[in-house]
Each structure stands twice: as C-alpha cells, then as structure tokens.
C-alpha cells in the first residue's frame, strides 16, 4: 500500500558563535521518516555539530554529532514515526567567532 502523503519539515537556524540550539517540531503524519538531509555551509570547518532524532531516540548519527563543511549529505531511512511525536535537532556552534546557518530537511511518508 503506497503512502498517501509526503511531508517535509525544515529546520534552518543561524546559530551564533558559542551557542547551542535544540529545536523541536511535531510529526504531521503516521508513517516513516524516509530521508534526512543535512546542509553544512562553507566555512563551518567542522566546528558545527548537528544531531537529529525523534522522541527520546537519536537516529542521525546514532551517537555523537555530524561535523562537516560545505556539504549536503542526504541519508535515506525508514524510521517509523507517529503523528504529533516530537522530532528534534541539536545544533552546536563551537566556532569561537563566526555564526553559521545550518539546515536539516526531514522527509516523511505516511497517512
């Protein structure tokens, strides 16, 4: 049975130097997270740490943080989620001077 709808949640934040952010959105459907795309801007130089998860479970990466520079990887997944469940990102800018703008796009399929 094919999924009835696809939804996308976009987390995009400019994080100041020496600041961490935890942002939470709610899942708009019952289904799966089909992919997660992380965008690290040029200049982040590995000083920006990003993690993504839902509920109490961190799924990307499974532990620790992603720390990249000028990269936009997309990770396919089939993580089951439920409507109104929390999805969250943690972005930690450990750069001492520069703010960085990071995006995390979460694609979900379901009913």
């Amino acid at each position: 049975m094919p999924a009835k709808q696809t939804q996308q949640v976009n987390f995009r934040y400019t994080v100041q130097a020496g600041v961490g952010i935890r942002a939470v959105e709610q899942v708009p459907l019952d289904g799966i997270i089909s992919s997660v795309c992380f965008h690290f801007p040029p200049g982040a130089m590995g000083w920006v740490q990003v993690a993504f998860g839902h509920g109490s479970k961190q799924i990307m990466p499974i532990a620790g943080f992603l720390q990249l520079d000028d990269a936009t990887p997309v990770f396919p997944t089939a993580e089951v989620v439920h409507r109104n469940e929390d999805i969250w990102v943690i972005i930690r800018n450990t750069d001492a001077i520069n703010p960085h703008t990071v995006s995390i796009m979460v694609n979900m399929d379901g009913d």
Binding site: I21, P42, G43, M45, V48, D95, A96, T101
Partner: peptide
C-alpha cells in the same frame, strides 16, 4: 511553531565566515 531552546557551548576553534549566507 517549533520549540527552540538555546544554551551556551564550549568553543573549540575558529571557522570561516559563511559568505554564501543571505547574499
């Protein structure tokens, strides 16, 4: 609307300005 919390983190180095941001 997303719930956003901020908190201080320990800085570890210096990157480069993101010139592609909002230009």
């Amino acid at each position: 609307m997303p719930i956003v919390e901020t908190y201080p983190v320990v800085v570890e180095g210096i990157g480069r300005v993101d010139y592609s941001n909002a230009v």
